[in-house]
Design a protein around this nucleic acid. Structure first.
Lengths: 210, 210
DNA sequence: TCCTTTTCGGCACCCTGTGACGAATGTCAG
DNA sequence: CTGACATTCGTCACAGGGTGCCGAAAAGGA
């Protein structure tokens, strides 16, 4: 992501990386379960000490939120470049969809991560803090477009409701695995923009390629 | 709440109650902060041991979710009694508003609790599990009314989006304290049902009686 | 070789949460 | 009054998450 410096650095070289810890943790969590895997085991597998793990991540659960946190920056950028004439909710939907196009080779890992995040209560709880930044990215855009403070009722409600719809889409996609993630996201966000007026318009996506 | 048995019970009488622990914890959290207050201190103030606290609540943070958990039952009941002719989203909005009428004397405590729940990250994280039951109450109703499984995309999205809008209302009410909570809830839910089409319809409530 | 920089490891410590088990405190039956 | 029963409580031990502290390790640069 950010390695424009193949130049030799100064101090002792890192013994691992945030990404390596993430991959190892995801594997161990999937194999043995989240609660059954201790931070010591993750660190030991990576060949570092427990103390070092907590230098890369503030909490055990944070190790699975790397990619999601990156998505926030992507959405901010997409919203900033959205055409000013586009209706607000359309701009939001398109930005969210664009930020959720994954390469086919990344899908299996994405599935595992989402499966854990929705099935393990402790991980679901850790979501709140990370969701917050995502919501505020949307709220900030909506506030700017409507000329209201980002923390007033309308932008706040939009930001949270949009994430709520996306979470529903994530969850159904994760459970069914029969269509592209963006199909679910599009359906949920269109239903939201329609005020959930007609349930028939939001039937489950029909099977297609994943 | 449930004390239809003034008859003498059998074993050793309880040394405290869930409610007493809640009041004590709320006071200590407000005075010293959540993280700065240990479970030992709460228990000691109530005159019981730490182990006993965890017999009343599964986690330190659960102590502030008592009332909210009760609200879920109320909403379920209100939705069950909603007239079948009423549009789904209207029924949901009316049920939520009815469940959030508080006596004036309960408002200060409600404010303190909500203030903590939204300002302390650790408490915000604990919200997920409790919100889940709330969302499922709405999803179940929406699923029943639309003839879809409660865990399919549309009911799921509605349940979560409704809660999201309510949380935005809770937060603004908590921050401004200038109008009745139901005014904020009504505004947020109407904006949601309108698909967030017109921001002007969702200006902040103007000052009135609290 | 010595200095600076950066990361790492180990240790001590506090707190949350849980299981086990016996003691405390009440009612009820005889 | 006494013993059986039921329910809650307190103590203890323990695993694990998370943090502050400090010296050691491993690099580059002068």
């Amino acid at each position: 992501m950010t390695e424009p410096s193949p130049v030799a650095r100064r101090g002792r070289p890192p013994g691992t990386s945030a990404r390596e810890l993430e991959v190892i943790a995801l594997r161990l969590f999937t194999e043995r379960g989240f609660h059954e895997t201790t931070v010591d085991e993750i660190a030991a597998t990576a060949g570092v000490s427990r103390r070092t793990f907590f230098r890369y991540y503030d909490a055990k659960s944070d190790v699975l939120w790397n990619e999601f946190d990156n998505e926030v920056g992507t959405i901010r950028k997409l919203l900033a470049d959205a055409p000013a004439g586009l209706p607000v909710m359309d701009a939001v939907r398109e930005a969210v969809l664009a930020a959720n196009h994954y390469h086919a080779e990344d899908v299996p890992e994405l599935r595992m991560r989402m499966s854990l995040l929705s099935s393990v209560p402790e991980l679901a709880a850790s979501a709140t803090i990370h969701y917050d930044a995502w919501e505020r990215a949307v709220s900030a855009y909506v506030g700017a477009r409507t000329g209201q403070p980002a923390d007033s009722l309308y932008p706040l409600a939009v930001g949270r409701a949009v994430l709520a719809a996306c979470r529903a889409a994530y969850e159904r996609w994760s459970a069914r695995a029969d269509a592209d993630l963006t199909v679910y996201l599009d359906a949920a966000l269109r239903a939201l923009t329609a005020g959930f007026a007609d349930a028939a318009l939001t039937a489950e996506p029909s099977p297609s390629e994943s």
